[in-house]
Nucleic acid binder design. Sequence first.
DNA 1: AGTTAAATGGAGTGACGACTCCGAATATAT
DNA 2: ATATATTCGGAGTCGTCACTCCATTTAACT
Lengths: 185, 185
Amino acid sequence: MKGSRVRADARDNRARIMTAADEIFGRSPNASTDDVARQAGVGIATVFRHFPTKTELLEAVLTLRLERLRDRALELAGSDDPGAAFYSFFTQVVSESASKLAIAQALIAAGSAAGEDAQKAGRGMREAFDILLTEAQRSGAVRTDAAFPEVYALLVGASRGATAVDLEPATRDKMLALVYDGLKP
Amino acid sequence: MKGSRVRADARDNRARIMTAADEIFGRSPNASTDDVARQAGVGIATVFRHFPTKTELLEAVLTLRLERLRDRALELAGSDDPGAAFYSFFTQVVSESASKLAIAQALIAAGSAAGEDAQKAGRGMREAFDILLTEAQRSGAVRTDAAFPEVYALLVGASRGATAVDLEPATRDKMLALVYDGLKP
DNA sequence: AGTTAAATGGAGTGACGACTCCGAATATAT
DNA sequence: ATATATTCGGAGTCGTCACTCCATTTAACT
């Protein structure tokens, strides 16, 4: 006899809802909760049972994305070539930014600016990125007079820029080349 | 006897509504039409008389902003120092981007992606910026292998980056310094 | 198989927002 | 000053969306 009793279908549904929400909100930030439920193949009430508030659902999705990014940064952190690791991560984040940003935007639009877990995940991701930056600077791949805040602002900006107008991949790469030239010693 | 009869109060109200909308939507993209009416000191029906649709109101405001930016670019275009003109315009756009982007975002959220007048104004603004870029390149202030699309993407990105996290002005300037280093020959 | 507590689903509820209707007010021309 | 066509204002309509209630289903343990 265990204290916590977790029914299998509940776990399944929770996962299915998060997947659906990730897709739906990644495409259209103003989607309704019903849309998520339909995509997940469950009733509306089930969504609200697992996530009592739309805001909480959005936060959960955003948190997951941020944690994945952090993990990827940490994987790259031990690399032989810190410069390549840094620029690779930067490029990856920019490439995948569209849907992630849509979710963040949805969260903001939903009213709640903050969000316990999401904030923590954001901090974790930034710390991991800071490690990549520091290593790249130590190896001479990035100028040392560029501090974390402005480099991070550049990452966010490049991401949002790539999202804003739907950029041709070729143009995006050229833009990133300009950014990287500014970052080199 | 003239064919077009324009009552003075109507003109006044239209102007007041646009000003109010500019402020309100610049602050919070999800504001309601009632908020605009209240801020403008008119009734709701008056807003809808002048702008039959919320989308049209947003477009009108965005168009005005874009036209102002274009004018500023054209003013700077004849300058003695094309490099300074280019970087000055770039910096100005980034500084003021917060509210402008909020409006554009509101437009997207309102459903309508396109928008006749706004598109035309956007084109005009981009053309004016292209002039600044070309002159700056000719004067040797900007590298000549940077084409318009990626430079424009950089402008949009820097703007959105500055907006995203509310950046300290000092950090924003450092970020811009990095961008400008990437643009120099 | 039977029991039971947890989980589900979909019809409801209340609030809010874009947009309309129409009687009252007012600018303009005579 | 009066007439009149235009504009105004705010109460109302309609649709949508986040969130709830409860009868029914179902996983899990004996």
